[in-house]
Structure formats: structure tokens, C-alpha cells
């Protein structure tokens, strides 16, 4: 069986500085995988590079054995909640239907079928009562659920989610992880940028530790080790394990200090 995601020699550079260096990654099908690493390790960039949203200096991505462009329709995406303007004049239902725009193609407008799909996705995330709400009225957790619903209507085989647990309450986190596990049970693959070291073993069965380079990738039992954590996080790992990072900033150009690479 081919891998759900296969990344080869992926390199992304911001100016002369590499943000991701020569990443090789194979994610078997049906896994729930966490991407972990310190701030500026390139976690968000890795997802965006896989999705073709940032220019890459080198490398190739395959989804279920075919080039990314060919199998793009198998991919679903949940961007960081903070990446959009939630005061945009639109409704919850409308946002969720955007997940169907790719399948709809040009010139066709979302109709009754799309509305039904969106409604059932909203029901799944417990947001069906909010369908007609203006999105600016949502709380952080509700925004995250709406983004998840939008990804669900994509009906993808491989999902990439950028910090879906960021700033949500415990109940929503529970609901989201249940949903992710349900997706895995259906044989889908879910790749999640994650921050909380405490919950990795409980939530995920596969993990990739990243710090510009790939530090380690594999089953949580054998990969999520102190040794690997030290390699990824540097000497701060004991501190991190005692006290999980509370409010990690989104990845940007703050790679300074981590793994500056001299080719």
C-alpha cells in the first residue's frame, strides 16, 4: 500500500535562509499524525509547502502515490483560524460551502446539494444551529468548528490541519479530537500541526518532530522519545514537558536561533 503523503527532499528558503531543509517524510495511510517542533521550526511552512501555497526551492510531494497536482482533490485543508478576517460579511453556512468550490468547478454555483452537504457537516461539528449566523458572532472554538466543517465537506482522504486546537476550550478540543479519530477510523489520514507535548501520546499514533530539518518521524511509541525531543527542542525540553507552551506564536520568519544551516 502506498503512503498517503510522501515528501521528498523538500526545501523551502526565505531569502537565503532555509526554513525547511531537505525534508523527507512518509505518512502511511490511516494515521493520525502530529507535526511538532519549537516556534519557527517550519511546521506551518511544511503544510503550506505540501499544499503548494509557498514556493519551494526543491522537492516533490506525492499524495497516495501520485504527484500532488494530480491528487489534489484527495486533500483537505484547515488553515490557522487567525489567518482570515472573521468580520468578513458572510454566514457560517456560506463558509462551509466554500469547501465544495473546488469540486464544483468554474461557473457553477453552490446549490441545494452543497447546502445539504454543508448542513450535515455542521451537524457533525455541533454547529447546525449556527448555520445562518454571521461569522463575526462566533467564539474562537466555534470558528474552529466551522473551519473543520468546511474541511469535512471537501470529503478528502488526507487532511492537513494547522493548529486546530489553538485557543479552543477543553470541550471543543475533545470534540475535535473525537472527530479526527472518526476520520482515521474511516481510513483517512490526518496531519496536524500540534503544540501540546502532553497530549501527543493520547491523541496521535504517528508523529514528526521538526526543526527546520526533519528530526524524526514514525510511530509515537518509538519516535516521541526524550532523545528526539531534545534534538528538536534543544535543551529546553524538560521545561517544555513540565509546562506545555501556552500560546505559541504562528510560524513566520522567526527561525533565528534554531538550526541555522550552513550548506
Amino acid at each position: 500500500m502506498s503512503h498517503a503523503v510522501s515528501v521528498n527532499d523538500l526545501t523551502v528558503a526565505y531569502r537565503e535562509r532555509p526554513v525547511l531543509w531537505d525534508i523527507d517524510l512518509d505518512v502511511p495511510s490511516g494515521k493520525l499524525m502530529a507535526i511538532m517542533g519549537p516556534n519557527g521550526a517550519g511546521k506551518t511552512t511544511l503544510i503550506k509547502a505540501i499544499l503548494g501555497l509557498v514556493p519551494t526551492a526543491a522537492g516533490a510531494v506525492e499524495i497516495h502515490g501520485k504527484a500532488y497536482a494530480e491528487n489534489r482533490h484527495l486533500v483537505g485543508y484547515v488553515p490557522q483560524r487567525g489567518s482570515v478576517d472573521w468580520d468578513f460579511p458572510t454566514t457560517v453556512l456560506d463558509v462551509v460551502m466554500m469547501g465544495r468550490y473546488g469540486a464544483l468547478g468554474w461557473l457553477r454555483r453552490p446549490g441545494r446539494r452543497e447546502r445539504e452537504q454543508a448542513m450535515s457537516a455542521l451537524t457533525k461539528v455541533g454547529m447546525d444551529d449556527f448555520a445562518t449566523r454571521q461569522i463575526s458572532e462566533l467564539s474562537g472554538g466555534q470558528q474552529q468548528r466551522v473551519f473543520l466543517a468546511r474541511a469535512l465537506v471537501q470529503d478528502a482522504q488526507v487532511y492537513f490541519m494547522d493548529e486546530p486546537f489553538q485557543g479552543v476550550d477543553a470541550r471543543t478540543e475533545r470534540a475535535i479530537i473525537d472527530l479526527l479519530k472518526e476520520l482515521r477510523e474511516q481510513g483517512r489520514t490526518v496531519v496536524v500541526v500540534h503544540h501540546d507535548l502532553q497530549t501527543v501520546t493520547e491523541y496521535f499514533d504517528w508523529v514528526t518532530l521538526l526543526n527546520v530539518r526533519r528530526i524524526a518521524s514514525g510511530p509515537v511509541d518509538t519516535t516521541f522519545t526524550d532523545e528526539n525531543l531534545r534534538l528538536a527542542y534543544g535543551g529546553r525540553v524538560e521545561f517544555l514537558q513540565r509546562q506545555a507552551p501556552a500560546d505559541p506564536a504562528p510560524d513566520d520568519d522567526s527561525t533565528a536561533g534554531y538550526g541555522r544551516i550552513r550548506p
Binding site: 503550506k48 485543508y77 488553515p79 478576517d85 466554500m98 468550490y101 454555483r109
Partner: peptide, 21 residues
Amino acid sequence: LLWKEFKLLSFDPAFAGALGL
């Protein structure tokens, strides 16, 4: 003609890109 594309582009260009637009 491009209404829904322009809407998505304005709201969430990264998602639009991920959809292949």
C-alpha cells in the same frame, strides 16, 4: 461569472490555493 471564486479569494486566499484555484 467569477463570483464564488472572488468571494473565496477575498475571504481565504490560502484555502482557495489549497483547492487548486
